[in-house]
Design a protein around this nucleic acid. Sequence first.
DNA 1: TTGAAAGCGCTAACAT
DNA 2: ATGTTAGCGCTTTCAA
Lengths: 346, 346
Amino acid sequence: MREDMPTLETVAREAGVSRATVSRVINGVRNVDPVIQEQVRLAVERTGYVPNRAARSLVTRRAGTVALVVSGAGDDSPSEQNAFAARVFADPFFGRVVSGVVGALRPRAMHPVLMMAETTAAREQVVDYLRHRDADGALIVSTHAADPLPDMLAAEGLTAVLFARPARPAPLSYVDLAHHDGGRLAAERLLSRGCRRVATISGPLDVPAGQDRLAGFRDTMARHGQPYVPVAEGGFTLASGVAGMTRLLTEHPDLDGLFAANDLMAQGACQVLRERGRRVPQDVAVVGFDDSSAALACRPPLTTVRQPVEEMAAEMVRLLHEQVQDGTRDLTSRIFEPELVVRESA
Amino acid sequence: MREDMPTLETVAREAGVSRATVSRVINGVRNVDPVIQEQVRLAVERTGYVPNRAARSLVTRRAGTVALVVSGAGDDSPSEQNAFAARVFADPFFGRVVSGVVGALRPRAMHPVLMMAETTAAREQVVDYLRHRDADGALIVSTHAADPLPDMLAAEGLTAVLFARPARPAPLSYVDLAHHDGGRLAAERLLSRGCRRVATISGPLDVPAGQDRLAGFRDTMARHGQPYVPVAEGGFTLASGVAGMTRLLTEHPDLDGLFAANDLMAQGACQVLRERGRRVPQDVAVVGFDDSSAALACRPPLTTVRQPVEEMAAEMVRLLHEQVQDGTRDLTSRIFEPELVVRESA
DNA sequence: TTGAAAGCGCTAACAT
DNA sequence: ATGTTAGCGCTTTCAA
């Protein structure tokens, strides 16, 4: 690794101008003679100069990074710490978030620092990190209703944007999906197929996404003459889909339609259905939610309600960047509309 | 966000000592009077002081971050850029890498900056980032044989540790698995079950992991009187598992054992087998590789060759940290041993 | 053992 | 339009 990194001074000497001028050219500040600009640009080229982020951050008080935080609600038991990331990333959802975030950050010359905040200590660390302005703000993907992080951030007056409205209201910006509409789309699909005995595996009922998808589904079913919909509460995991489907099938062996509140659970449900000799969609039609890679991995491929996760993640970046740029902290939220994607399962 | 962040000076005044002393206490440098140490500690407490990372980095020339790079071999076509992260994280493997890395970084007070390097531009960005010492080093997870990033890093003399030996030798440290042994374990399992007509869906044959798992499998089969093993080359994706199994079943309808070079492909294979009316493991025994969450998601749960990804990732951090600390760049590699995990599929 | 002082490389007034 | 200069907050000689 070279030790003699060129500095602004190096370039300035090379170009025969002052440091300030070089700085102006590099930062694209106006009021620089085009000729000099070119000279500087050449000098940069020749010297192989690249700005020192630390020095720049020190004076601008901008880190040029954002914290990308995946937070849970765990305590400090060692078991929590271990496989949290593995568990979280087992859901294809997070890959899509990362994809959207990285894509949106790139043109803004910012970088995501990945932080897993599953334990009390880890959450403190996140808050500290932001308080010191080691990152300019935080993008938060919270995985539990009881997650204290949003409140902690709000209390500290830190800049953050959440993926999804927090279970307990907090004065923070967020992007979200019109989950209720999503539930409606699922119901309409099953209804239009003529399903008469429909059940659902919901998400966790302590988070808005779980509640609202269920409410939207139920409301629509009720409006179409099916006021009673058996519900198995799930946890957005494949295993909970398996468990939920098993229970529903035992209690309602004659059901002919299922709405699972995410694709992972729908996938688990399909496995159980097949094992029990039910054909999908002929015997039981299944609608998932998310349109994640699990929808394609599933047999048969899932008809599902698409959540535009990548765009939502990009919007988080846009909101955060705006707040960082303007120094404002006004709360915004942006709600995206879901869309039905028809494949084979319903 | 508070504007009046306390600095070293603040603490020094509060404690009635000099900045230098406070710095020493904070950095745990010896030769500080215990009494003064306590005074300083109290002052830090009272003022709520936290060191400014930028200022510290500027003088220490340490960033306190590492780049966690997931790289591919794409060019600059827009299609590449888009869903790379989503595609990559769809493999549960990467969640485990993240888990291991984050866990190992935490006690070292370092943070991972996530970088996706799928395009030429993105790779340049990674190199630049490291050249400027915006990160102290890089942890590289490369997903393609033709990935030019390892060579680029080596050429620049940058500090990096790879997950898995690169397809083309490069002077960089890495951690890896004894893939050949893994292939052997899979073969032994199928042999001990009495499988006589065995086939395999291999990984990509241009990467060591693909080659070596296959070689280990074949060698062992040959040694036990089965010199001919039909091979379908896969790409470590579920879809390629489906395709491979379909082909193998068409060409060898009587096969009774399968080794898939990762769990995702094994999962795809199991789907096909079930659709074709083959019971697993009664008709066809299946052994996967990795022991990822896909092994549990699969029906039936996969007997598989465990790759201790989290530990390997942690070891990457250890190696990198060592190099960063010592300023050395001596090449090391650490090879982990695989282990057979028996579940239901074989 | 502690303090004084010199920067690290950069940006942003302020002068010119 | 360009240069001069004063720090940003920290670590680290060097003296005391």
